[in-house]
């Protein structure tokens, strides 16, 4: 079996650019200026992974996944995905967290974004979030949903 290159079967989408999030602040994928890149349509994929990279964590970070069925309006309604939450502890400086999103048979979405809430009391936390969406269905059928642009090959 000839396995494909990763970049021909996956899309990489920045959801929350790396930033210092102040205490008692929530940052979501849509609140940043590059709005069109902050959420991702995932219905065509089998699996997605939300990858949260942490640096210094001053207070615990609550991670949530939110979904939306229509982002065409001025104020789309984002809803927490039931059960899709986690807490990254303040002791977990310089850690990587990987959340798998099983897309088979889901009825929510098809747009998803991350929500990060930094708790209060001890300053800012530095963190960023990226979606990896794997195995676009059409790709298996010879389609061309492969869409990760490689900036360089070394």
């Amino acid at each position: 079996m000839s396995l494909p290159d990763l970049h021909s079967s996956i899309r990489v989408c920045q959801n929350i650019p790396v930033q210092a999030i102040a205490a008692t602040t929530t940052v979501t994928g849509e609140s940043h200026p590059v709005a069109e890149k902050q959420y991702i349509h995932l219905r065509d994929c089998y699996n997605a992974y939300l990858v949260v990279s942490c640096g210094d964590i001053a207070s615990a970070i609550q991670v949530k996944l939110q979904h939306c069925d229509d982002i065409s309006g001025a104020r789309p309604t984002w809803i927490d995905v039931s059960g899709a939450t986690d807490v990254i502890l303040a002791s977990e400086d310089n850690s990587l967290h990987i959340y798998q999103i099983n897309l088979r048979g889901r009825e929510d979405g098809p747009y998803y974004r991350a929500s990060l809430y930094v708790g209060g009391g001890a300053g800012a936390s530095t963190v960023g979030a990226t979606f990896l969406a794997a195995w676009p269905k059409d790709n298996l059928l010879g389609g061309d949903l492969a869409m990760t642009a490689i900036d360089a090959t070394w």
Partner: peptide, 9 residues
């Protein structure tokens, strides 16, 4: 606010 993706063979 961008992502760089680099492949290493």
């Amino acid at each position: 606010n961008t992502t760089k993706v680099i492949a290493v063979d």
